[in-house]
Amino acid sequence: MTLALRLAPYRGVLRARWRETLQYRLAALAGFGTQCYWGLLRLMILAAFYQSGPADATDFSFAHAVPYVWLGQALLSLFPFRLDADLADSVRTGSVASELLRPIDLYSYWFWRMAAWRLAQAAPRCLLMVVVAAVILPLVGLDEWALTGPAGGAAAGMYLLATALALLLGVAVTAVLISLMFWTVSSEGARYILPAIVWFGGGLVIPLPLLPDGLAAVLGYLPFAGLMDIPFRIYVGHLAGAEALARLALQVGWLVLLVLLGRLLLARGLRRVVILGG
């Protein structure tokens, strides 16, 4: 038997799998194209502002802004724009009570499930976005809009840590909101208002350092800055050294606080469901 013949079944499986993946992925690919467009549009607008305004308008340069915008697009699905539908439904309908029959810690189960799901969602898009923004853009002559590397080794390390914290923080925010649905019943409010707050407070509408200084300072201490703004500014070197470490500590602080709050709300909510009889 020749080698080619031996490998034939594997090749067949591989080809079938590839085709299947491709079919599933078209929608994702379209979404990816959309995000590239958004990134370009935002950069074009920002570039026009930098060219129009005085040179000393901000210490956050256009070179800072470019990676900031691309990272925001690349990591979009890591963040809590919407509540995880089936968890939200299980709380709304009270069917969550049946989860108590399982010998698990429900909060941890929710938490890691959501974290894994978001990571799996974000990873492929993130890789593609890096390829497009860092490799393809310079090739087509758009160097000044290309994603550049992190501001240094220390920045890279702290960035990875800050992004991991951002993911967990996002999950903790969602867990609090889902737990709140034991009381509010209607998830509509959270569904409509949450994305707006996250977009603005995280720095997706415009980078936080470009907001008026007072507003930027206040938003910088809220948990939403820990979702996007802090890791991105560490990456581009706008936050460094002791200040960067302080911001990482801020992320950790919010994470601990929100996890405790989420656990408390979940425990209270479950007790309520059990008493009401689901």
């Binding site: 299947e20 491709l22 079919q23 599933y24 078209l26």
Partner: peptide, 12 residues
């Protein structure tokens, strides 16, 4: 039943 898009299947 694969749930893939017709557009792409048309190509593939």
């Amino acid at each position: 039943t694969t749930g893939g898009s017709r557009t792409l299947r048309a190509l593939v």
